[in-house]
Write a protein that binds this DNA or RNA. Structure first.
Length: 442
DNA sequence: AAAAAAC
């Protein structure tokens, strides 16, 4: 299977080669022909499966092949849940369309001045990437012309609904031409998503990529049990000093927590910066640009950065606080192991977070190996929660290395007692389709 | 009990 066999045009194939893409991912192999054929598509795919290219490549090809009517406004509209994701999708379109220089792209997101966006909407555009709130704002001011609109793509549709964008999305969709092509991507395909898809899509091609295929095997996951926040912090600092550490994202549960931890990491001699929704958009953009450029090595972020952010040099994702939903865990760790690189996802679990950890394991169908860090002995407070995951108090604390509690390399066949045996029994056995969105701790 | 997104 190659991109050429998907009937993509030469300029796109050249751009893909230049960008180092070798062969289509499963979602790309399924979605590209369907979108090219003009079909509506409902694709269920986790993050990190190459879904941006899966909708951009065929869309670019269709825009290139079909005659553009005169007038203004977008021919393709992509809606995304966060501003950063919108910017990233637009940038990806520019990369893939390097050989199609006449195509025009733009973004419409909140937090930035209106006048440039008004000018943008007065011009003919090929692909417009937007967050729903600001875009609807422009629509209500009568500034959006949909007469040229051919295709609408809803990226991370489940996330948009979670964020309360359902009515915004429906109002936007109601204003688009009935003849449009509609493509919807979502990590889940249940409940409200299925209802929305039923209303918006016509005879859609349904694509579902199993989680086992979607999960990036190159992400090594493990968890450290910690007895208190001070130990969590000390462990993080120790890990950040390890040689294999490239760039890292550290996720926190609160915006304030992100600020405080970024300062603390900075005091420990690393270039660190916070990223969260209370920052001004200019500061958000600057921080992300510095992180991409590598001048900031450690990004301390809330879940605003959990989805979509694509930086190849991220070697480690830390869950300083475990995420609220199991699904967010999958999205967070998907920030590493990108572009063919390997990555590590390291979580810290307080006693109070062990329930959340269990739910994450149930959601992904994979146990997360427990690791003990040299210099941080297992105390009673931290070991307690290891019940059911690993026998507490057994064995010696081991050096931070690729060993689990049973002393076997991670991923090696188990057969002993305790956690390793459970790993073997459960590893990768849970069917992907069983995964459901589960709230943690609520 | 938290985060995101329009002003």
């Amino acid at each position: 299977m190659s991109f050429a066999s998907l009937n993509l045009a030469a300029p796109l194939l050249n751009a893909l080669e230049a960008a180092g893409y070798e062969k289509p991912t499963p979602i790309q192999a399924s979605a590209i022909p369907a979108v090219l054929a003009g079909r509506d598509v409902m694709a269920c795919a986790q993050t990190g499966t190459g879904k941006t290219a899966a909708f951009l490549l065929p869309t670019l090809q269709r825009l290139e092949t079909r005659r553009a009517p005169a007038g203004r406004g977008p021919r393709a509209l992509v809606l995304t849940p966060t501003r950063e994701l919108a910017t990233q999708v637009r940038d990806a379109a520019s990369v893939y369309a390097k050989g199609l220089p006449h195509l025009r792209f733009g973004t419409i997101v909140g937090g930035v001045p209106y006048p440039p966006q008004e000018k943008l909407l007065m011009r003919p555009l090929d692909i417009l990437v937007a967050t729903p709130g600001r875009f609807l704002d422009h629509m209500e001011r009568g500034r959006v012309d949909f007469s040229r609109l051919e295709v609408v793509i809803l990226d991370e549709a489940d996330r948009m609904l979670d964020m309360g964008f359902l009515t915004d999305v429906e109002r936007i969709m109601a204003a688009t031409p009935a003849t449009r092509q509609t493509v919807m991507f979502s990590a889940t395909f249940e409940g409200r998503i299925a209802t929305l898809a039923g209303r918006l899509l016509k005879d859609p091609e349904r694509i579902r990529i199993a989680a086992t295929e979607a999960q990036n095997a190159k992400i090594a996951q493990h968890v450290h049990y910690v007895s208190d926040v001070a130990q969590k912090k000390a462990m993080l600092m120790a890990l950040l000093n390890e040689d294999a550490m490239g760039q890292a994202i550290v996720f926190t549960g609160t915006k304030h927590g992100a600020d405080r931890l970024a300062t603390a990491i900075g005091q420990n001699g690393h270039t660190a910066a916070a990223l969260h929704g209370d920052m001004r958009q200019g500061a958000r953009n600057r921080t992300l640009a510095q992180f991409r450029a590598g001048t900031v090595r450690v990004l301390v972020a809330t879940d605003v950065a959990a989805r979509g952010i694509d930086v190849a040099a991220i070697s480690h994702v830390f869950n300083y606080d475990l995420p609220r939903s199991a699904e967010d865990y999958v999205h967070r760790i998907g920030r590493t192991g990108r572009a063919g690189q390997s990555g590590s996802a390291v979580s810290f679990a307080l006693r109070a977070e062990h329930g959340a950890l269990k739910r994450i394991e149930r959601f992904t169908g994979q146990p997360i190996p427990v690791r003990v860090l040299a210099g941080f002995p297992v105390t009673e407070a931290s070991a307690q929660g290891a019940k059911g995951a690993a026998p507490a108090g057994r064995g010696r604390p081991q050096r931070s290395g690729d060993r689990n509690r049973a002393g076997r390399p991670e991923g090696a066949p188990g057969g002993g007692r305790g956690f390793a045996r459970r790993s073997q029994e459960r590893d990768g056995r849970a069917p992907a389709g069983r995964a459901r969105l589960e709230s943690i701790g609520g």
